Computed example of a mutant assay.
Amino acid sequence: MKKQRVIGMFDSGVGGLTVMREILDQLKDVRIVYFGDTARVPYGNRSREELIRFGEESIAFLIGQGAEVIVVACNTSSATALPTLRERFNIPMIGMVEPGARLAVEKTITGRIGLIATETTVRSKAYSSEVSRALSKGSSPDDSVLREAWQQGEAAIALVKAQACPLFVPLIEAGLANSAEARGIARTYLEPLQANCVDVLILGCTHYPFIEPVLQKILGENVLIIDPAQAVVEELKILLQRMEGGGLYGPVEAPTGSVLGKKHWRARYYVSGDPGLFRQVGNTLLQEPIDLVEQVTPGE
């Protein structure tokens, strides 16, 4: 029987559930242990040092629960802390920034890419760097006209506008993603992106797919919204195939008392804050209801 791999995921709150949904829909032979650091949400205004510490605590907890792969389902942590976390843990990790930037490069038609993200992610300029890196590594637009013009030096492909959206995460965590307040704030945030004529918009925070219908209505059908979760799933598929083929990473022994000893489950949920609020908001997103959420304090 094929080994059922355990994926560990962490985010500042409910946002990472958007990534989890894509994984569960497309990968039937995995289990997911999810940790939402809801006691310390939002991460968007945290320092790099704090984000590294939070990441270390989250990853150590997930490994203790039997995780064999870590998905850093938080763009802010991916943009600032992931390189250091990879140095400190001998476990494969997938972040959000590189897959999202690569997908945006492939899907743009005009070469004008936009980004909405937390303040920390915008300041890091990680997405701008990854767009350039993706192009240098051989990624190119699916659109043949733009691809040919770019290859001949007649057109540019770049992230032309990054907009910080600090109010989105608190609204989403409060279950107000489709409120009149959210719609008004979204119009204000999107104005600079519309003024820069972007044709693709990267959702640079895993919370933002909650508000995607509001964003799409404001932007119109001519702007393609990029959810990096789709690209993360493709990268995860490749990684799991390598593991099954005897690649760099083999099976991880589950510690005594870990969730691996429990049968007939696909997902386990842990939070550092209020389990009830997480369950309430999370149930609006996932097709399978969240029945049990356990409160834990990583690092203690």
Rank of each mutant, 00 (worst) to 15 (best):
L146R: 11
G16R: 05
Y208D: 11
G175A: 06
T284I: 06
Q287G: 08
G111N: 12
T108M: 05
A155S: 13
R279M: 14
E244C: 02
R5W: 14
I172V: 13
Q241F: 10
Y269T: 11
I23R: 00
Y43E: 02
L292G: 00
E57P: 00
V169T: 04
G16D: 05
I226E: 06
V41H: 09
S12N: 03
M20W: 08
G247D: 08
K217M: 13
G13D: 11
I225W: 01
L159K: 09
A149V: 07
V33W: 06
T18S: 15
L292R: 14
Q280K: 15
A117P: 03
R53L: 12
Y270D: 08
S128E: 15
A195Q: 15
R88I: 01
A155T: 02
R102K: 14
P298H: 07
V160S: 09
G16Q: 07
E130T: 11
E56H: 09
E119M: 06
D291N: 14
T110C: 07
R133N: 13
V19Q: 01
E49R: 09
I116S: 11
G15V: 03
S124W: 06
P289G: 10
E173A: 12
L236I: 10
I70R: 05
G15P: 05
N222H: 14
M93P: 01
V69T: 08
V200G: 09
P213E: 12
G36K: 08
K2L: 12
E253F: 04
K28T: 12
P42I: 09
S124M: 04
L292W: 06
G8P: 04
G184E: 08
E22I: 00
E56R: 15
A180P: 05
F210V: 01
V122Y: 08
R133W: 11
C205K: 03
D199A: 02
F61L: 12
C197L: 14
P99E: 12
E50Q: 15
V296H: 10
Q152S: 09
C205Q: 06
E154N: 15
Q151H: 12
I109R: 15
A101C: 11
V71R: 00
L82C: 09
F54S: 01
R147L: 08
V271D: 01
A180M: 08
M243P: 02
M1E: 14
I226C: 12
W265C: 04
Q295R: 15
N222M: 06
L115Q: 13
R40D: 08
K161I: 01
F278T: 12
L27C: 01
Q287W: 08
L176W: 12
L167N: 09
D11V: 04
L146S: 08
M96W: 07
